[in-house]
């Protein structure tokens, strides 16, 4: 239990500096993100929580390079983000598996794009099929899978591509609560193996605390950074830690931060 969250080194791997995002459509203009700054260290599991519509997805899409900001900058591994790239993998809330490919072929997709030899691809695909507990399902098509299984494939597909940072946008948001718990357990285990740098978005406070090393709390629209909470719960973690007094104290703190938000909003 001697592995606290800070086995991290100097400079942040991902850094957002005063990021602003304004959606302009016709004559209306919505400020979605207002000077948001954020640092994610190497091998850190960072989580963003905030009320619905506060711009969490927007921030991840900006980091992925799938959207262009209207101010500020995002730096990943020393480079300015200007467009998508395989150093920033992403798992989306919607199911985005390619339905014409089998599970194994989906996981292989990124590897094929960079012309990795077949033998190497196969090894990696098998490793990640095992990691997400789908070793028997490599030949299945996405339509034959449940929602939870699809998201497991999406996680495997992103990890197999070995990005510098994995962006996850409410990946369990569409799942029922039992499947969600299973997925959280799986993600904890996978993360203990890989120690991948993760930026994870959720509106579920329990999920944020049990998964994260640090939780960044955002304000309601326009989204700003409100507070950052260190999660001093030792790893490896398990879901029954949600009943520990430490956990509950942190939860109370974050709930307080979010409730201020909801009150201010009305």
């Amino acid at each position: 239990m001697e592995t606290p969250m800070t086995q991290t080194s100097g400079a942040p791997l991902l850094e957002a500096r005063s990021v602003e995002l304004r959606y302009n459509s016709g004559n209306s203009s919505v400020l979605a993100l207002d000077r948001v700054s954020l640092e994610v260290r190497e091998k850190e599991f960072a989580v963003i929580v905030g009320p619905s519509g506060c711009g969490k997805s927007s921030l991840l899409y900006l980091a992925a390079g799938l959207l262009e900001s209207t101010g500020g900058e995002i730096i990943v591994g020393g480079d300015h983000v200007d467009g998508p790239g395989r150093d920033r993998g992403m798992v989306f809330q919607a199911y985005t598996l390619f339905p014409w490919l089998t599970v194994a072929e989906n996981i292989e997709f990124g590897l094929k794009r960079r012309r990795m030899p077949a033998a190497e691809r196969k090894e990696i695909v098998n490793y990640y099929l095992n990691e997400v507990g789908l070793a028997q399902f490599g030949g299945h098509y996405p339509k034959q899978l449940s929602g939870g299984m699809k998201q497991r494939v999406a996680i495997a597909r992103a990890l197999a591509n070995d990005p510098k940072v994995l962006l996850m946008d409410e990946p369990f948001g569409a799942l029922d609560s039992q499947t969600r718990a299973t997925m959280q357990k799986l993600l904890l285990r996978v993360w203990d193996h890989s120690h991948k740098t993760v930026l994870f978005v959720t509106h579920d406070i329990d999920e944020a605390i049990i998964l994260g090393d640090r939780v960044h709390v955002m304000t309601a629209r326009p989204g700003r950074m409100k507070a950052t909470v260190d999660i001093d719960i030792p790893r490896p973690r398990s879901l029954d830690m949600m009943l520990d007094p430490d956990f509950i104290a942190i939860k109370r703190q974050i709930l307080g931060l979010l409730h201020d938000e909801i009150d201010e909003d009305h």
Partner: peptide, 15 residues
């Protein structure tokens, strides 16, 4: 074809 399907492919390194 859903946008996020294209987005997913970009984040996997597609040109």
């Amino acid at each position: 074809v859903p946008d996020d399907m294209l987005n997913a492919s970009y984040t996997l390194g597609s040109s």
